[in-house]
Structure formats: C-alpha cells, structure tokens
Simulated assay, not measured.
Amino acid sequence: MIFGKRKRSIVRLLVVEDEPLVAFDTEYLLREQDYEIVATVDRVAHALAILNEASDIHLVLADLGLADGSGLEVARVAGEHGVPVMIVTGHCPPEAEGMAMGCLIKPYAPRDLLAAIRVIEDVCEGSRPRKLPSGFRLFSRELPGKADSAAAS
C-alpha cells in the first residue's frame, strides 16, 4: 500500500487523565483521528473497573498523579491483562519502565501523541520504530508481563 492508510492494530483506547482540559483535548484529538475512546476517566478505581470488565482495550494512556492514587497501579493492572500502556505525565519515574511501554512528557504537541501511539503500535506488531517523537521515551520492545508469563510456561 503506497498511498493508502495502513490498518491499525491500536484502535480502542482508555484515557486516564485527571486534568479536565487535557482529557477533553486528548479525547477530541483521538476521535478526530478515528480512534475509539472506550472511556475517559480521572480516577484509578474507575480505570481498574474498566480494565477488569472490558476485554478489547488496545492501549491505555495513563497520567500518574490521580486523585485516588497513581497511574502506575493502572499500568500494573493493564499489564496483567496484556494491554500496553503509555504513561503521559510531566515527569516519568524510573519504576514506570517496568510497567509501561513508554512515556510521553507533558506538555506535548498533538502530533507527538499520535506519533507515540504509532511507535507503540509498531513495537506491538514486531516492527522497529524509525524515529521517536519529541518528548517520548520507549521503554521496552515487549509488553510488560509477557516475558514473565513466557518464562513461567
């Protein structure tokens, strides 16, 4: 396909963000780019409930500082369900590396968010990303938790 759009493997996203304007802008941008937003939530408890109920989430975008806890808990549970996570925060702590596929630093340009999602999609499909967007750090080439489950079998 030279000029056509490639088929996406990441379509359905869970947005976990406690800043209303950032949440609104993110949801609007992603919908405009034909992503489906499963939900936009601002609390860890809500995110965990959705992760435990929904079976078809392709990516979680998780802020860290939430009113009822840390987005790292969301990332941990998403990893247990085999759902990739991108941390989206002002400062990414070292412990995020074991729980997420990457981290995008706020504030970010809309094109950088979209490019970071494409990078995670490429990695999930086994491709090597050509270039990382500004403010994005890729942690791993595999889903957190998959190496552990493979070693256990």
Results as ranks from 00 to 15, higher is better:
residue 76 R to Y: 13
residue 73 E to N: 13
residue 14 L to S: 04
residue 25 D to M: 12
residue 116 A to R: 11
residue 25 D to C: 11
residue 90 G to A: 15
residue 19 E to D: 15
residue 46 H to K: 12
residue 24 F to H: 05
residue 20 P to V: 06
residue 94 P to K: 14
residue 108 Y to I: 00
residue 62 A to K: 04
residue 68 D to P: 12
residue 121 E to N: 06
residue 51 L to E: 06
residue 5 K to H: 10
residue 66 L to W: 08
residue 72 L to V: 10
residue 86 M to I: 12
residue 73 E to K: 13
residue 142 E to A: 12
residue 40 T to D: 10
residue 7 K to G: 05
residue 138 L to I: 05
residue 117 I to W: 00
residue 72 L to T: 02
residue 101 M to W: 02
residue 66 L to E: 13
residue 50 I to W: 02
residue 147 A to M: 09
residue 100 A to Y: 06
residue 145 G to L: 08
residue 54 A to G: 00
residue 16 V to N: 14
residue 18 D to M: 02
residue 23 A to K: 10
residue 74 V to R: 03
residue 74 V to T: 06
residue 86 M to R: 02
residue 148 D to G: 07
residue 110 P to M: 09
residue 152 A to F: 08
residue 85 V to L: 03
residue 149 S to Y: 04
residue 32 E to D: 10
residue 91 H to D: 11
residue 133 P to N: 03
residue 40 T to I: 01
residue 55 S to E: 13
residue 25 D to W: 00
residue 121 E to C: 07
residue 21 L to T: 14
residue 104 L to H: 01
residue 21 L to I: 14
residue 95 E to T: 01
residue 151 A to F: 09
residue 8 R to I: 05
residue 96 A to E: 03
residue 25 D to P: 00
residue 112 D to S: 05
residue 32 E to Y: 00
residue 37 I to Q: 09
residue 128 R to I: 14
residue 45 A to R: 11
residue 51 L to C: 01
residue 4 G to Y: 05
residue 118 R to V: 04
residue 1 M to W: 04
residue 90 G to C: 08
residue 34 D to K: 11
residue 92 C to D: 15
residue 74 V to I: 11
residue 13 L to P: 02
residue 37 I to T: 07
residue 56 D to S: 10
residue 11 V to I: 13
residue 87 I to N: 02
residue 65 G to I: 02
residue 131 K to Y: 07
residue 100 A to I: 05
residue 131 K to L: 11
residue 146 K to I: 09
residue 49 A to D: 14
residue 90 G to H: 09
residue 17 E to W: 00
residue 133 P to R: 13
residue 102 G to E: 11
residue 30 L to Q: 05
residue 124 C to G: 07
residue 57 I to Y: 02
residue 94 P to R: 07
residue 62 A to T: 15
residue 66 L to D: 13
residue 60 V to G: 07
residue 14 L to V: 08
residue 50 I to V: 14
residue 80 E to Y: 04
residue 74 V to Y: 09
residue 94 P to F: 05
residue 109 A to C: 02
residue 56 D to V: 00
residue 134 S to K: 04
residue 27 E to G: 13
residue 35 Y to R: 08
residue 9 S to H: 09
residue 22 V to A: 15
residue 120 I to E: 05
residue 82 G to E: 14
residue 2 I to S: 14
residue 87 I to A: 05
residue 111 R to I: 12
residue 21 L to M: 15
residue 65 G to N: 15
residue 29 L to I: 14
residue 136 F to N: 08
residue 103 C to H: 06
residue 76 R to P: 01
residue 148 D to K: 11
